[in-house]
Amino acid sequence: MVLLTLLAAVAIAIVRQRSLFGVVLLSGIYSFLIASVMIVLDAIDVALTEASVGAGVSVVILLATLHLIKTTEAAHTRASWLPIFVSLGVGGALVWGTLTLPPFGTPDAPIHRHVAPYYIENALRETNVPNIVSAVLADYRGYDTLGETVVIFTAGIGVMMLLRGGKRRRSEDDKAEDAS
């Protein structure tokens, strides 16, 4: 509950903040809070990913992006009401959708009765790997992880081509100033 309150506070601060530098730092804090929520929910693997990617790498890459653009957000000329209706509508629909879900943590919810018992019973015997999350990710769901790796590969190639394509690369031994 404390974490969720902090999350809401950080989200409001991000919306109110005009300096993009502050927004980037606040989004790092937001990621750490999400990671803490994941730890509370016992999803350590997800928490580790969120902390390293969300709070670590993406903050650095966003800062590198700020290096390229202006660091203050342009003030809105007029308030527009359509976006807030859209987000309230979508948010309301999502909340309405959760109303009919089984209560959180119910052992006989459908999601816990499909393939999860099989993994829990057989993962150690079939793969020799005590961490079931790793076994499911890399072995039982190997195709998905392969596709995910290809997605990262494609995204990286795409960004490299976009950012480098337009202009000729400078010589490597330029006197390097500070990168941050």
Partner: peptide, 25 residues
């Protein structure tokens, strides 16, 4: 396969970082 994931992720993240930083100079 996890080693493969590690190599691609580390390479891509670093390449993205280089691409952004070099663009600014």
């Amino acid at each position: 396969v996890e080693l493969g994931v590690l190599i691609t992720v580390a390479g891509t993240m670093t390449a993205l970082f280089y691409a952004f930083v070099e663009r600014g100079r």
